[in-house]
Design a protein around this nucleic acid. Structure first.
Lengths: 336, 336
DNA sequence: AAAGCGGATGTTATCGATAACATTTCTCCG
DNA sequence: CGGAGAAATGTTATCGATAACATCCGCTTT
């Protein structure tokens, strides 16, 4: 049959239930003024036909889809990847689909291309995981009428934003090393144009200064184990280095290896604290003390901010900061 | 003005260009029968108004969106996560948006929920990263008229499928260990219901049998460093174990630590080969010999299969197998 | 020069939902 | 018991695109 090939529409349901299509629409949208009995009849018809509302039609008339666009950097870095899946999960629970638009670099033209693609799809809202400063200018282009939430963006931007409190995380890590008795703490940071890096650097520096400790020169790297290793080779040759705080766990891994090759034992000779708590961190040699970020909380917070904006709800806050948590394992000890 | 708040539609462009909306549509779709001069006028009007076609309207009338749905397990595992971002990238290059539907478990009900959500959005096609057998039955529910491609699915299913040649990868790894002089090779596999695991187990076993080596009992684990560690604690106590092939790099990491704690040196006492080549693998202690999967190739192949189906192009193959590559580092040596 | 043809363009119907308004049916109360 | 007002339901317009068909025009063809 030709009929069978086309999926049923609202009018088909209406006919079967003996009502008008509008009543079907009311049932679907939980409109209050529908008699219970009718509601049941309609539901039955929906089930019988396997009816499934056409979102395109709905989007056309309402001007809003049930789709949230995410702009993220193309990366398998643990942080961004976790954030993405957590957000998708939260959005799905709230009945939204998520369209990912990843981008090789967070520069102006790439971002506006992705944002354009999202706007083409008439997304109901946008989430931008904008962890670098260069993103800022491109984001000015996002039209004001589409709800946007930033994750990891510029805390000073004044835009709706959810972040992990990087400063607090870095303070906890640095504090932990100082408390163990180290005179000072070296820091291997991520790329300095990332907000995450900036916050961690700031927290580290502040804590040292408050403790009256000398602030060693900053070593910056990308996020990779490879650069951690290179930096580690240098640090391993410096006997005065007894405590290192790295901006993520992979950097720490590279440093662990460099120290190991040079015969410097962790934590006996050198203590080290990472950041992220990747699932493997507990199985490094030795198990890594690190700072865990609650990506799930961030994702859920971002979603609720976004939904608040969609509802035009003035009661919702516009900046949420999620506290991180120090996870103590075995990579820190009192200096020799 | 109220006018300014609503984005321009096709008729607005038509009015400005002095043509009918249908001509605008023709220009947009590169229809041949449009005079060059008209085409230029329309293009100018489009640019002037900043017109952007409404995909919802198009989807409504054509019944197809420019959206590809991906069904994947919610996970930050390196493999699946890489696959996802690679696929998104490829799809974006081809002008498609990607809607992710992740799922906590690949069981029947979760999968059909996600597939339903995708179908609601009228996706133009589906990509299912179905790495476990339990997924199979749920996938039978996908209606036949929507193009589907599987990544990592059941090689025997007869459905359009792209996979990495797990068997070949495992053979290369096992072979490499045997060639180094080991009498046999132990294998720590992933969950046995994953196709990936199954292929790797098969390749390992075959290679041993062909070489006339004894096949040690299979040790199976999940994919985590944690289980690798637990399994490693056992293996470390068995002096006859000199060569281990693990189903992924994280398992290898856990085993490395267990061996280290027990004083068994790698590769001097025990050789080990992983799978995946996560970016950190080169910085394990020691650097890990492993098998690299070309996720980018897989993603692009999957996309082209999908596009082929959409075009109803009979010329496209329906199963593509991407070869993996052995990456030799320092975790393998000749036995003592 | 009339017929015929194809290229360029316009007109109208259509997809499947919601919005806005119209109408019918209850229910309650004086 | 009649009428007001609310509840329940129906009717029609609409969103913005493409599909199908209609028309117009300029040329070739004979």
């Amino acid at each position: 049959m030709d009929k069978a090939s086309r999926s049923p529409a609202m009018t088909d349901v209406a006919r079967l239930a003996g009502v008008s299509h509008q009543t079907v629409s009311r049932v679907l949208n939980d409109h209050p003024n529908v008699k219970e009995q009718t509601r049941i009849r309609v539901r039955a018809a929906i089930a019988e036909l396997g009816y499934r509302p056409n979102r395109a039609a709905r989007a056309l008339v309402t001007g809003r889809s049930q789709l949230i666009g995410v702009v993220a950097r193309n990366s398998t870095l643990y942080g961004p990847a976790s954030m993405l899946t957590e957000f998708e999960q939260a959005a799905a629970d709230a009945g939204f689909a998520v369209s990912v638009g990843s981008v090789r670099e967070l520069d102006r033209s790439s971002i506006s291309a992705v944002v354009d693609r999202h706007l083409d799809q008439r997304v109901a809202g946008l989430v931008v995981i904008a962890n670098v400063a260069s993103a800022a200018e491109a984001l000015a282009e996002i039209p004001g009428d589409v709800p946007v939430v930033f994750i990891d963006g510029d805390p000073a931007s004044g835009r709706p934003l959810v972040t992990v409190d990087q400063v607090a995380g870095a303070r906890a890590a640095t504090r932990h090393l100082l408390d163990a008795g180290h005179e000072t703490v070296w820091h291997v940071s991520g790329p300095t144009d990332w907000f995450d890096s900036a916050g961690r650097i700031q927290g580290w520096k502040q804590t040292l200064q408050e403790a009256g400790a000398e602030v060693p020169p900053l070593l910056s790297a990308d996020w990779s184990a490879a650069e951690g290793y290179r930096t580690g080779q240098m640090l391993a040759r410096m006997p005065e280095v007894t405590a290192i705080f790295t901006a993520n766990d992979h950097l720490a891994l590279g440093i662990l290896r460099a120290l190991h090759e040079r015969g410097r034992r962790v934590p006996h000779d050198v203590s080290i604290v990472g950041f992220d708590d990747v699932p493997e961190a507990a199985y490094f040699i030795p198990p890594l003390t690190t700072v865990r970020q609650a990506f799930g909380d961030v994702a859920r917070a971002a979603l609720s901010l976004l939904l608040g904006q969609m509802r035009d709800d003035p009661g919702t806050a516009d900046q949420i900061v999620v506290p991180p948590q120090l996870i103590v394992r075995e990579s820190v000890a009192r200096p020799a």
